Amino acid sequence: MTGAPLLETRNLSKEFLIGSRFSALGIRTVHAVDNVSLKIMPGETVGLVGESGCGKSTLGRCMVRLYDITEGELYFEGVDISHKSLREMRPLRRRMQMVFQDPYASLNPRRRVRDLVAEPLRVHLRLSEREIRERVARLLDVVGLLPDHMERFPHEFSGGQRQRIGIARSIALEPSLIVADEPVSALDVSVQAQIVNLLADLQERLSLTYVFIAHDLSVVRQVSTRIAVMYLGSIVELGQAGDIFAKPSHPYTQALISAVPQPDMKKAGQRKRIVLTGDVPSPIDPPQGCRFHPRCIYATDKCRNERPALLPLASGRTVACHYPLNV
């Protein structure tokens, strides 16, 4: 990769405090995101994948500063936004937007579509009502909806149509970065393909950069330039999408890819299914050493006692493992 990154995280961590000092367990710390360093280059799509609870959605919200970060640094377009106030962040909101997972919950059911899509225009731009109405009509047309739809309420649309409304709202201010938090997981398979194609078309037309968060690796493989695999709050592998699917280097990545359905029956019969034993450790009390070692079939004493650093390999991959595969 060459050039300056659009967004960069440096040793970014996010912790949440839960419980109460009056309870038996007291106040505990959830290590949701731990020491993540990642560069997002202009025009690419970086897929964030991992099991539920691995911290990928929390990382995405930290990237657009919906969550304040606990430690580390966050840069957007070369500007340190790690600890900017709400007022200081407001001019930057136009350049970074988010598409949420649940189109049923992300749209206010009491407001018409015209008001939902127009809200960012009213907040950030000085436009007349006629100009706003024309802009909303164009945005709905871009995402495959009719101008007449702006007078309806969210409950009058299907799940896929609601997600299109959310996408229209996210591109209203012509951002450079969109964080899509599992944008197709709540939709039917046929509708998923339509939304994925829409996002790809918008990326080409509007020169967008995506962070695409998902747990469905088949979808991530289709849309991503690079893939970052997360486990228990940390990135364990990062590389080009095709390379990771062809030869995963981290045992956790290998297990995830082995679970992806294979349409070719001959290849499906040749693939070895890797079933991980045990549950994901608690982010409240993560294990010592490599966080994956309690479930890893290759774990040694070194893995149990020493945490591996995320280091580049000769293959161009970046992996946090003492004994990487397919090197």
Rank of each mutant, 00 (worst) to 15 (best):
I167H: 05
R114K: 15
L116S: 04
V143F: 06
G159H: 07
V117H: 03
S176V: 08
V143K: 02
A180F: 06
D148L: 11
R169K: 12
L121E: 06
D148H: 09
G160T: 07
P183G: 11
S128F: 08
R122W: 06
I178M: 01
M150Y: 06
H124I: 05
F157H: 03
L173E: 01
V184G: 03
H155M: 11
R135D: 02
V113F: 01
V117S: 01
Q163A: 03
L140D: 02
D181E: 09
D115P: 03
I178G: 00
R122Y: 07
I132A: 06
A172P: 08
V113Q: 00
A118E: 09
P120L: 01
R164T: 04
L127F: 08
S170A: 15
Q161D: 09
P120H: 07
I178T: 02
R162C: 01
E151Y: 15
P154Q: 08
G159L: 08
G144I: 02
R164P: 07
D181V: 10
G159V: 10
L116C: 04
R152E: 11
Q163W: 02
D115Q: 12
V123M: 07
R152M: 14
E174N: 15
R169L: 13
G144S: 03
A172L: 05
R162K: 15
A118Y: 12
Q161V: 11
R133P: 01
R130P: 03
S128P: 13
G166S: 11
A137N: 13
D148S: 15
R111F: 12
D148F: 05
M150V: 12
M150P: 01
R135T: 09
Q161I: 11
R152G: 12
L127K: 14
S170V: 10
